[in-house]
Computed example of a mutant assay.
Amino acid sequence: MGPHRATLIVNLNSNMPQDPPSETLPVTRVNNVYPFIAPEKHFTEQTYKSKVVFITGGSAGIGLEIATFYARAGAAVVVTARRQQVLDDARAAILKAVPGADVLAISVDVVQTEQVEAAVKATLDRFGKIDICIANAAMVDRWDRPFLKEDPNKWWKAVEVNIRGNFNAAYYTLAHLTKTKGYFITITSEAAQVRIPIGSSYLVSKHALGRFVELAALENPEVKVMAVHPGGIKTEGAMTNPEFEPYLTDSVELPAATLLYLTSGKADWLNGRFVSSNWDLEEVERDWKDKIVEEQALVSRLHVPS
Rank of each mutant, 00 (worst) to 15 (best):
W269V: 05
S22C: 09
V284P: 02
Y48F: 15
C133R: 08
A90N: 07
A238D: 05
R142L: 07
T178L: 11
G58Y: 04
D109L: 08
T68P: 03
E295A: 03
V304K: 09
V194M: 10
D144Q: 10
T56W: 11
T28S: 15
A169P: 04
M16D: 15
S201T: 15
G63F: 01
V86E: 10
F54W: 09
G2W: 11
G58T: 06
H229F: 03
R273P: 00
V30C: 04
N153C: 14
K157W: 14
K206P: 02
Q46A: 09
V161R: 04
N271R: 07
R145K: 15
L177F: 10
F212L: 15
S300V: 08
A135H: 11
G57R: 02
R286L: 09
A256N: 08
Q46W: 13
A76F: 08
E23V: 08
R91S: 11
L270M: 02
I66M: 10
P17G: 12
L302Q: 10
T28R: 13
S251A: 14
I134S: 07
Y34I: 10
S50E: 15
R195Y: 15
R91H: 08
A227N: 00
R82W: 10
P39E: 06
V108L: 00
S277F: 01
W288I: 01
M16R: 12
